[in-house]
């Protein structure tokens, strides 16, 4: 029987990739963020997950406004990065786990989550950066992935409540999977930030603390705000907290926080790195 070994949550600001590329991790500006990663790397080295179920949002690489799925589940043999418009070096290709992907898709639809099924899917910095942070410098990824994309681009977005419910349905799907893989849950993005508009540069540590303080023990507390109220408190891109909420749901009913790092600013963003451990029922 598959086992969920933990939940890893971190921000995915493109500039993190730039800092790693330049070797700037120990610069005073970046160090407080990168200091949050060694405990995650230690946990991963000890727990050795085989597959990661990753909740993130596309940034205009795989999806355009012509067809914008609310929830998209990858079922591809592999997931490549591609030019995101800036001509930067490409991130490594991830091996997929199509059998687990299709199991999750079938279980989700059975559970009345009518997801979009993707046998081809490009993945962008939002997915790659957390893995670069977790396994810096590896030649090839030591883990397969099942990516689940949540629309944070085109409103109406799914509600926080629905997103948590999706995550919980993914947890049930993993519980009914016949394989014996060790499964890592990943949530990427956030925390508070806003890139666009006259309010650009908005961050909100008090809302971030609220989210971090409730994520493990009472994730339903994060679902009482409407999307509009989440945007008000977290910023237009702070709604990426939806990825975290879904990932928390996928950990199961009870979880406890093992590690937390919070720092602002990196680039225009308040950033956090968290590890949660599921608690057996």
């Amino acid at each position: 029987m598959a086992e969920i070994i933990g939940g890893y949550f971190t921000s995915h600001v493109p500039a993190i990739g730039g800092a790693m590329h330049r070797g700037a991790q120990q610069d005073p500006y970046w160090q407080p963020f990168f200091d949050g990663l060694p405990p995650v790397r230690e946990l991963l080295a000890r727990k050795k997950p085989d597959v990661a179920v990753v909740f993130s949002n596309d940034h205009g690489l795989n999806f355009f406004l012509d067809t914008m799925p609310t929830f998209a589940v990858g079922a591809a043999p592999s997931y490549a990065n591609a030019d995101e418009g800036w001509g930067l070096p490409l991130y490594k290709t991830f091996p997929g786990h199509p059998a687990l992907s299709w199991h999750i898709i079938e279980a989700l639809v059975e559970d009345e989550f009518d997801v979009t099924m993707c046998q081809k899917m490009l993945v962008d910095h939002a997915l790659s950066i957390p893995f670069e942070l977790a396994w810096p410098g590896v030649e090839a990824w030591p883990i397969r992935i099942v990516p689940i994309g949540i629309n944070t681009v085109q409103h109406p977005l799914p509600s926080a409540r629905r997103t948590l419910a999706l995550g919980r349905a993914v947890n049930r799907a993993i519980a009914s999977w016949a394989g014996d893989e060790k499964v890592l849950i990943v949530g990427t993005g956030g925390l508070s930030h806003q890139l666009d508009g006259a309010r650009a540069g908005f961050m909100n540590p008090s809302y971030d603390q609220f989210c971090l303080d409730h994520l493990a023990a009472d994730p339903d507390a994060l679902t009482r705000d409407s999307i509009h109220d989440i945007v008000r408190q977290a910023g237009t891109q702070g709604v990426e907290i939806l990825n975290w909420i879904a990932a928390r749901g996928a950990l199961g009913e009870a979880a406890q926080e093992v590690h937390r790092n919070y720092h602002l600013p990196i680039s225009n963003t308040a950033a956090a790195t968290v590890w949660l451990e599921p608690e057996p029922a």
Partner: peptide, 30 residues
Amino acid sequence: DDIPGTTIFGPAQAMRGYALNAMCYSFNNA
């Protein structure tokens, strides 16, 4: 309760901006 300095990218914006956003999306190609 409109949020100051903030545009929610909803249906009206999606329709109005389609051509501009399509052009920007094309820039994924060098």
